[in-house]
C-alpha cells in the first residue's frame, strides 16, 4: 500500500472552468470548499456534491469529486436520499437563495427538521443571477433594480438562520465571500458536525447587485462561542442584521435515520401464504 498523498486545495479542483462573472463571490466559496477538503484530507471518491439550479449550483462540476447537478430547488432532496442510502459517503448540498429558500423552501425546512448527517451551503447573493437579476426571498423589500419588480419586491426578506432554527437545524453558521479563510473553517467544521449543518454564505453578486460591495464594511465576526440555547438563538436570529458571521448555533441532537435494527429473516412472502 502506498502512503496516501496529502492533497492540496487545488488538487480538489476539476478541469472545468467556472461560468461565473469575474468578481463573483462564488469563486471564494469554491476556493474555501477545496481548502476545507484539503484540511480534512477528504477522500475524493467518497464525497458527493449535490446542487440544484442557478449560478451557485454549477459548483459541483468544478470540484474533482462525485457530483450531481439536479433540478431547480431539489438538491437537498437528492442529497438526503443519497446520504440515507449511502451513509458511508460525505454528502454536501449547495445552491443559491432562490433555489434553497423559494422553489426549494419546503425541502430546506424539512431537511433542517429531519437532521440527516450532511452539510448544506446556501450561497446567498440575494438575487436570481442566472435569469439575469430578479428579486429572491432574501432580497431587501425596497430593492428596485429588477424590471420584474420595478418598485422593489415589497415583501420582507426571509431570515434563513431563523427559519433553520425554527425548523430544527442543530448547527447554523454564516460566512462572507470576502473572507474565504473563515468560510473554509466553517465548512470544515460543518462537515465534521454529526448531523445537518447549515452554512449560509453571503456571496456578493457583482453583476446585478454591485451595491453588495458595501457588505465588506457591515459584516462582523462573532466573537462569542456558538449559542447552544434555542431561545437565545431565536432572539439573535430574529433581531440581528444578518451580517454577523461565524458558527452561530451548535446544539447537536440525534440524527436521522437511527441505526437500523438487526436484519431479520429474508423471507418477505410469508404473510401471503394461506
Amino acid at each position: 500500500m502506498n502512503e496516501p498523498v496529502k492533497l492540496k486545495a487545488k488538487d480538489y479542483k476539476s478541469a472545468v472552468k467556472p461560468i461565473w462573472c469575474p468578481g463573483c463571490g462564488h469563486f471564494s466559496i469554491l476556493n474555501a470548499l477545496t481548502k476545507a477538503f484539503a484540511a480534512l484530507g477528504i477522500a475524493k471518491d467518497d464525497t458527493v456534491l449535490v446542487s440544484g439550479i442557478g449560478c451557485s449550483s454549477r459548483l459541483p462540476a468544478y470540484v474533482d469529486s462525485y457530483g450531481f447537478h439536479g433540478v431547480h430547488g431539489r438538491g437537498l432532496a437528492i442529497a438526503q436520499g443519497l446520504k440515507v442510502a449511502r451513509p458511508d459517503l460525505t454528502v454536501i448540498a449547495m445552491g443559491g437563495d432562490g433555489d434553497g429558500f423559494s422553489i426549494g423552501g419546503n425541502h430546506f425546512i424539512h431537511a433542517c427538521r429531519r437532521n440527516v448527517n450532511m452539510t448544506y451551503i446556501a450561497m446567498d447573493n440575494e438575487v436570481y443571477g442566472m435569469t439575469k437579476g430578479q428579486a429572491s426571498p432574501t432580497t431587501p423589500a425596497d430593492w428596485d433594480h429588477s424590471k420584474l419588480t420595478p418598485h422593489g419586491p415589497g415583501v420582507r426578506p426571509f431570515k434563513p438562520a431563523a427559519l433553520a432554527l425554527a425548523a430544527g437545524a442543530p448547527w447554523i453558521a454564516r460566512g462572507y465571500s470576502g473572507n474565504p479563510n473563515q468560510i473554509a473553517k466553517l465548512i470544515a467544521e460543518a462537515i465534521e458536525h454529526p448531523g445537518f449543518s447549515f452554512v449560509q454564505v453571503l456571496s456578493q453578486c457583482i453583476t446585478f447587485c454591485p451595491e453588495q460591495t458595501d457588505w465588506k464594511a457591515i459584516v462582523n465576526e462573532r466573537e462569542e462561542a456558538p449559542l447552544v440555547d434555542a431561545d437565545e438563538a431565536a432572539q439573535l436570529f430574529l433581531h440581528e442584521d444578518g451580517f454577523q458571521t461565524g458558527v452561530l448555533y451548535n446544539a447537536p441532537r440525534a440524527t436521522w435515520p437511527p441505526s437500523p435494527p438487526e436484519p431479520q429473516s429474508q423471507d418477505i412472502t410469508r404473510g401471503f401464504c394461506l
Binding site: 432532496a77 436520499g81 443519497l82 440515507v84 459517503l89 419546503n106
Partner: peptide, 22 residues
C-alpha cells in the same frame, strides 16, 4: 431504507439521489 418525504417532488428526487449512489 424508507423515507417519508415532504412531498412528491422530494420523493422522486430522493430516489434519484439513492439510485445515483448505486
Amino acid at each position: 431504507n424508507l423515507v417519508q418525504a415532504e412531498d412528491e417532488l422530494a420523493a422522486v428526487n430522493m430516489i434519484i439521489g439513492a439510485a445515483f449512489g448505486g
